[in-house]
Write a protein that binds this DNA or RNA. Structure first.
Lengths: 119, 119
DNA sequence: ATGATACATCAACGAACATTGATGTGTCAA
DNA sequence: TTGACACATCAATGTTCGTTGATGTATCAT
């Protein structure tokens, strides 16, 4: 269901797209912000985001299938929590693609680069 | 057209959703990966991602309106480049919401916390 | 056993999104 | 000044997404 985006040499662009898609909706972002404070059961989330039950369930599924959250069943309740490793992978993906501030626009080399820049 | 997501005290969740939406598509991710290597003109991108001209133009607009890229017109060519500050803001958003690895699931407190955790 | 609670899942629908082909606009070379 | 080039934009269409209301399932208290 969930696949890691990184192999030793390359990035699985499809999985990266799913990661970001999972965070492209305001309701899901609200859920993530709540889960940033720790594990929550569905009924807590439901009240906090004021969403109909099936609607919240849909969004939780999107987050789950993207690998951003996991659920843990306990009796009648289902507790969701964030997967910190995945948030970390996403952040790393962004920082790795970020040119150094002030880098040469054309070649992306750092601001300190001299001589061999943009030949 | 583009608004920063952060104010002094709170996060503009709508802008955050637009950021992530911009990266929720494989074609746009490919463009971002190319731009990570430095500024590119549209025709270079077009060849590299093998997309029809109007299709690429559409995706560039999404990226531009989300604030992830800027364009610079020069003669007949239009050069696009990433905005590193925004990629940095996105990465920061993720890391700020990431519970410490090994933190208490329920309360989100760090692994080192003792005694007062989960009372 | 019965009913209530806490969910997941499904089908149906509208809304948002992506793709395509056509047209428009500015720039440049001949 | 004509034509080619490098785009942006638009209208039409198909596809994916999100919402709603209904139904299903497991758990628990009575």
């Amino acid at each position: 269901m969930y696949h890691a985006a990184m192999t030793t040499t390359e990035t699985n662009i499809g999985q990266v797209a799913r990661w970001f898609h999972a965070l492209s909706d305001e309701t899901r972002l609200r859920v993530v912000e709540l889960l940033a404070g720790g594990e929550r059961c569905v009924c807590e989330l439901q009240e906090a985001v004021a969403a109909a039950q099936s609607r919240l369930s849909f969004h939780l599924r999107v987050l789950r299938e993207a690998g951003l959250v996991v659920d843990r069943r306990q009796g009648r309740w289902n507790y969701y929590s964030l997967r910190p490793e995945v948030l970390e992978e996403m952040a790393a993906y962004l920082r790795e693609r970020k040119p150094a501030d002030g880098a040469c626009a054309a070649c992306g080399r750092g601001a300190g680069a001299q001589g061999e820049c943009c030949d």
